[in-house]
Design a protein around this nucleic acid. Sequence first.
DNA 1: TTGTAAGCGTTATCAA
DNA 2: TTGATAACGCTTACAA
Lengths: 345, 345
Amino acid sequence: MSTMHDVALRAGVSLKTVSRVVNNEPSVSEPTRQKVNAAIAELGFRPNSVARNLRTGRIDVVGLVLPQLSQPYFSSLAEAIMREAERHGLTVLIEVTDGDAEAELALVREHGPHLGGLLMYPVGLSDAEARTVARIVPTVFMSERAYDAPVDRVAMANREGVRALVGHMVSLGYTRIAALGADHSDLPERSAAHLRLAGYQDGLRDAGLPCLPELVIDTDPHWGRQVGAAGIRRLIERGVPFDAVVAFADALALGALPAVREAGLRVPAEVAVAGFDDTDEARYSYPSLTSVAPGTAQIAREALALLNDRMTDDTAPDAGRLVVADFELMLRESTVGGMAAWGGA
Amino acid sequence: MSTMHDVALRAGVSLKTVSRVVNNEPSVSEPTRQKVNAAIAELGFRPNSVARNLRTGRIDVVGLVLPQLSQPYFSSLAEAIMREAERHGLTVLIEVTDGDAEAELALVREHGPHLGGLLMYPVGLSDAEARTVARIVPTVFMSERAYDAPVDRVAMANREGVRALVGHMVSLGYTRIAALGADHSDLPERSAAHLRLAGYQDGLRDAGLPCLPELVIDTDPHWGRQVGAAGIRRLIERGVPFDAVVAFADALALGALPAVREAGLRVPAEVAVAGFDDTDEARYSYPSLTSVAPGTAQIAREALALLNDRMTDDTAPDAGRLVVADFELMLRESTVGGMAAWGGA
DNA sequence: TTGTAAGCGTTATCAA
DNA sequence: TTGATAACGCTTACAA
């Protein structure tokens, strides 16, 4: 690899002048700039970011801490964030914690000091630990739960999204709408469940419908397909009549689909089903699944804007800022019907 | 952040002695080592990897270049590689090309020189470009196509996997087995299709069955669900009788499932279906899908072993090495039947 | 066993 | 507008 020194020699200028050109500093005459650029091109010079980072103390690498990568929501979030980071001239270093609360803090302790910033989807972090993290490195959380810590946070429109989803079902004439994935603990880490349940209640209230406890299905916190299927089976066994299912996650909804079919009910003719997250599986399931798209691209954009702000601007406010991304209702066959997923005519 | 200097001052020793302790060099007396370690602990000192890398010229960061991340195979591959890299003390920097051939080379040109090594899933790279890449940075390809270049490569057992899959179907009594996803071009980038087709033919030959051209379905190179569904519909329209489908990718198979059902055929009673890749969707589809698991964990392990070898050992052979990972047949409902995907009794 | 001095490739300071 | 020189935090000779 050629260095600035080589370029300087070749262009017949000083090291510092090359540095000026590379960094687009203003005070360089046009002829000089051209000479230097020519030398850079001839030598195929690329600035050594390691040396630059050492010197500036600034690091253009931001960490992205996720509980998993092999899960559609996280991998597309990661993709969106990498795309966005590139626009900011930042490189993303992804770290996976497997949802281990201890690993989350350990990882930040280990890598945090040598990162320019941190984007984190925290899972097991306490308020105190969140404060610790923010002290180590400029941080933005992407999380549904609130923290008692001065940390910026980007969240989904959990409540509004489900509320709109319920409204959609009501508009189609469904009235006995079940909620799948509820939680009645006070655990802050179940905030997504709490907010979505609140949205469900809002939606019913909007429509003047009662909120019937027997239609609210608590489930295991691990929102997988089996959990969704089990929830619906319980509902059916109890003999509770229902004509729609608002699942708090696509995976729950995708488990609900076969469970509904098992009972001999057609989707959406007899029972409408919808989820949350707008994962690929929702788009391609059979029937395709109506879902709330949480605005991943916007989440990425806002998260990087907030982080960049904290990384560059010392006047960033002390208190944590909260940005809630817009949602979008993706209407598909599981509520509005239509042709089969792969149906020709 | 405290530096070695601070630690040295605190421990009352020289900079170099601290360096010795940090790097576990032998010639340090036990008392000194303890003093230094105490100081390190008190100050919470972490060696600055940027400075270290600059000085040593060695970089403990390896690039991972993938066409996508938001696709199950790639995100689980990435996860496996990160896990494995950690065992080698390496950090993984993921880069996504969106399958753009130009972006692949540009990315390597841009970041390659400042990476310790490179793991790449090439898509549009020519032989010449592959040689260029390998000249820039120690590289291991994870790819089904062979390159006329001295680059190590880790591949799936494409041919053997499909061969075994056909054998499995034959053992269940299926005899008119269709191949879905074939390609009859000579394009090297379609190697996966070519190898899997060869495996299909092997399997038929093993069983003494003829290879009927009308059962070999060429498809679009983009192995998605719609493509799979379209292929099967064509087969059905032509009135070709078949009792099994070996799809060259899970996505094709997942498209085949509804297409088969559309025709009023039951899976697997009347038509068995299987795929390749063992994605999550295969595991959770309805019915769950028999598939060839390509040994992702092993691919990650071998890829890092080869790369580490090239990064550290100058005696690594000049010629490119090839490692083919073991496959595993994941037998599920779409061939062996059984309870419904989520079925209780 | 321990310490001193030099240098990795860049940017920042200050003077020309 | 340009350039000489120091410095970022660490490791690697080479001495002591």
